[in-house]
Amino acid sequence: MVSPSATSVPPWAREPHVEPADPTGRTHTLLVVGPGDGQTGTAVRAVAAGWQEELGAAPVHRHDCADAAVAVDALHADLAVARVGHRVLVAGTAEACLAVRAAAVRAGLADDELRFGAVAADVRTVWCVHCSATTTAAVAAGGVVACPGCARSLLVYEHVSRRTGHHLGFMVDAEDQPWEESA
């Protein structure tokens, strides 16, 4: 009953999907997030190569990054001097894309300045609404993950924060717990 297009989870964070590059951009930052020669690394480099071909002669600042944190640093460095007309492309796992999107959104970029190519969407970073700890695990929306902070079992909700890229996790079995007499 819940329409996928209307939720906070971008389509590419549900299943792998590569958005087209934006040829109207004047300059671009290309963040290629994925280590080494493994499956992910190979896939993100293929996405990056496709985008570079689409963009032709437009100037592209490409950063090959080992992880999302490195990509966020590279993004901040580029945005510090970027002029309007600049676009940002991010190739990586959905989890990495969500993390970089969060940094870009916090830095003030608009949705029409961002493009994502997610090569896998099986890993999620889940934020515990009860204790604020986060955990990263291969878990689907609707699945359950243990919170490393408060040890509760968290239901991974189909709800993603723009500002952190985390999925919402809340206690899955609260209604099965013994209650206090005073309640």
Partner: peptide, 28 residues
């Protein structure tokens, strides 16, 4: 609901989990 989690989301995203309101166009 959790305001602390939802802050920064669009109006449509905030209401994403609510059943029925999207296909029926209520929220748009």
């Amino acid at each position: 609901w959790s305001f602390g989690f939802d802050v920064g989301m669009s109006f449509l995203e905030i209401h994403g989990p609510v059943p029925r309101i999207h296909p029926e166009g209520v929220i748009t």
